[in-house]
């Protein structure tokens, strides 16, 4: 049994210790905000926050989360309402298929926590490890800057 906090709630999960966090989140705990993209920490689709730090859940053993706080895309909402960053992504229509977007929002959230007023270049640098195939990069950068400006 592995126990941690998930999006503000205590959870215990009976999963193999060596199972990567991604699969436990996606299948055992039934959250949607972490996606399988590569399983090799190359694309960022699986990004979640572990005690506030953006990590790649596809290569993080679940036991590494023991006793810590895990936040996924769902965890940024309040009573189902989108956070300022999520709302900025909605306002900028910053997606096409949206598969990579969850990981991008988590990475951007971590950026804004450590640098509330990033430049365009700061945002691109922070998201350099997140791949998007639809080509929504510029919309994404606009959304992050909009959230920062509205803060």
């Amino acid at each position: 049994m592995i126990s941690f906090r998930l999006n503000g709630k205590d959870v215990s999960v009976d999963a193999p210790e060596e199972a990567d966090l991604l699969y436990v989140l996606l299948n055992d705990l039934k959250v949607n905000g972490s996606k399988l993209g590569c399983g090799r920490a190359q694309c960022g689709s699986c990004t979640v926050l572990l005690d506030g730090e953006a990590i790649r859940s596809c290569v993080t053993p679940t036991k590494a989360a023991e006793g810590l706080e895990v936040t996924t895309l769902e965890g940024l909402t309040t009573d189902g309402r989108p956070s300022r960053l999520q709302q900025a992504f909605i306002d900028e229509q910053a997606a096409q298929c949206g598969y990579c977007t969850a990981g991008i929002i988590m990475e951007a959230h971590a950026l804004l926590e450590r640098n509330p007023h990033p430049t365009d270049a700061d945002v691109r640098s922070a998201l350099q490890g997140n791949l998007c195939r639809c080509g929504t990069h510029n919309r994404v950068v606009r959304a992050v800057l909009r959230a920062a400006n509205e803060a």
């Binding site: 996606l26 949607n32 895309l73 189902g80 909605i90 949206g98 977007t101 969850a102």
Partner: peptide, 23 residues
């Protein structure tokens, strides 16, 4: 007119949308 995409709020808030999230 640029009507916002109907599926974008669900994408941004992590509602089950993709085949990979059907359980």
């Amino acid at each position: 007119t640029s009507v916002p995409r109907l599926d974008i709020p669900a994408i941004m808030t992590g509602q089950a949308l993709y085949i990979q999230e059907q359980r």
